[in-house]
Design a protein around this nucleic acid. Sequence first.
DNA 1: GTGAATGGTTATGGCTGCGAACGATCAGCA
DNA 2: TGCTGATCGTTCGCAGCCATAACCATTCAC
Lengths: 163, 163
Amino acid sequence: MASTGDDRPAPPVPPAPGAAFLLTQIGSQAAARFAERTAELDLTPPQVGLLRAVAVAPGRSQQALARHLGTPPSRLVALVDGLDERGLVERRRNPDDRRLHALHLTEAGHDLLRRIAEVGQAHNDEVCAALTEEERSTLTALLARIAADHDLTPGVHPGYRRL
Amino acid sequence: MASTGDDRPAPPVPPAPGAAFLLTQIGSQAAARFAERTAELDLTPPQVGLLRAVAVAPGRSQQALARHLGTPPSRLVALVDGLDERGLVERRRNPDDRRLHALHLTEAGHDLLRRIAEVGQAHNDEVCAALTEEERSTLTALLARIAADHDLTPGVHPGYRRL
DNA sequence: GTGAATGGTTATGGCTGCGAACGATCAGCA
DNA sequence: TGCTGATCGTTCGCAGCCATAACCATTCAC
């Protein structure tokens, strides 16, 4: 087996994880927890993201939405389908360009979005439970700086996955 | 179409994202970026996690590893297979209990882990590029408090996904 | 020595998301 | 007006990944 050199205290392995690792670790867990919460509303995180995106800018086409969210248009179709069947969003054909499907929230969609806002608030409190109010602000400020530095689209996050 | 109530500035929708959202957004992007970096070493993030776990505590059985990493044992098999074929880890049968496969890093595995440490360092710098040294420490401290509050196993993060 | 329990492996199935084609519609141009 | 190329939405097929469930080998309890 040759000399494998085990039995040492492991040199540079666990010398306190850096900020980047903690970021991914906590971020992943927070995303999973958020997915659990939204599942109680029968929504997946991508659906929530779509609802929010439609609410922020109603009337956009699916192509525009897809570009904004960074997802292939074919993925949006199924997403919109589910929300459409439940009466949360609706596709309105544009009379001027009948290729376009302008997306709008229904009244039920707006109501649900309000509940989502409450859930998001509770989620945020849960994540930050260990911090004081002041610490939360400094944390948020630092994170916002990082996000801006990486050109992350505000309100959109790349590729969340299943529950 | 009933009254859908569009055309308003969208009330509680984008009033500055909270810390939890920024956490998942940045964490997801950081994970993807890290996956890109490790891909240059022909490694996936789960493989890196396994290498680290084996290095920290050599000689553990696959079952113990699986419990520690929070993954089904069958997932570990394929993971270990890939690393074993490349001569990075080796399965040693325990003479006392020949069911057990004690996992150890080979010399090549140790070498690669050192390169991974460098990559991780560079990745950490990239993520925190917008912050001063002092700000990085405060950020890391805050994140560590959150991680501890959520009982996250140090050095292990739940469910990372593909590239 | 027999049966239950444990470690590891393999096989199967389901889910998901992407990319490539397809029909519909529109714009430009002669 | 008719033709051509581009754009939008949709559908379909494929491949990757992961988990669950059976499946051998080995060991432990009695």
